[in-house]
Design a protein around this nucleic acid. Structure first.
Lengths: 104, 104
DNA sequence: CCAATACATAAGCATACACTTATGTGTTGT
DNA sequence: ACAACACATAAGTGTATGCTTATGTATTGG
């Protein structure tokens, strides 16, 4: 199930921090470790989880691997969220129409 | 962390099915079991997780407990998603402004 | 009252998860 | 070519998760 992978990936606080860092732009695995007290293999494993969930994508550049947010993952969450548009606060009801477009 | 609870709650396929059922309207715990091959305690535990994550809320009615989608949970996900508005597909860029309103 | 019903909680258990250390793979500069 | 670097994978371990059965709590109809 595609949603399971996405939500499981986001259930981990460290992975959400990584993802948030990537929201600011592309970064390689070492740069992503800065600030997070985590071993190199741990980061590599987290990135693998985020990648197989479709939340990030990688781009090799020499011996570095640059990671960036994958818009497909973001869109998946938006699509999922669209099912519950009836429960969005009224003032942003117009949102439902926009989200509906994402359902293909 | 509030996001952790929400994403952990949604990481379980059974809980997402429950949540999706509730999207169709309020239901009690027994009604929610229909179709899902799950014991009564398991359902009770799942509902507790969804509730403490802020995704559903309960309303006692006699010896029944009716559950319904809590808009606050949905709004939390929307707010979280708003941080990544730069990565939404271009054609729904207008979405970002609407989501921004949710940030209070 | 009291039996039946609706749901919650407790306790135990198998599995999944996130972490670690150790090692492997691929790239770059010299 | 080879040493240094960036990253991935393997293997092992403690803890969290989701399930079960058993039991507790609250409400209702007879």
């Amino acid at each position: 199930m595609v949603d399971t992978d996405i939500f499981k990936a986001l259930a981990d606080p460290t992975r959400r921090k990584v993802f948030e860092k990537l929201a600011g732009g592309s970064l390689n695995a070492s740069a992503l470790r800065d600030g997070l007290e985590i071993s190199q293999p741990a980061m590599s494993q987290h990135l693998a989880v985020l990648r197989s969930a479709g939340l990030v994508r990688e781009q090799r550049q020499g011996r570095f691997v640059n990671y960036e947010v994958d818009p497909d993952g973001i869109a998946s969450i938006g699509t999922w969220l669209a099912r519950y548009r009836a429960y969005w606060p009224k003032r942003i009801e117009a949102l439902s129409d926009l989200l509906k477009d994402m359902d293909q």
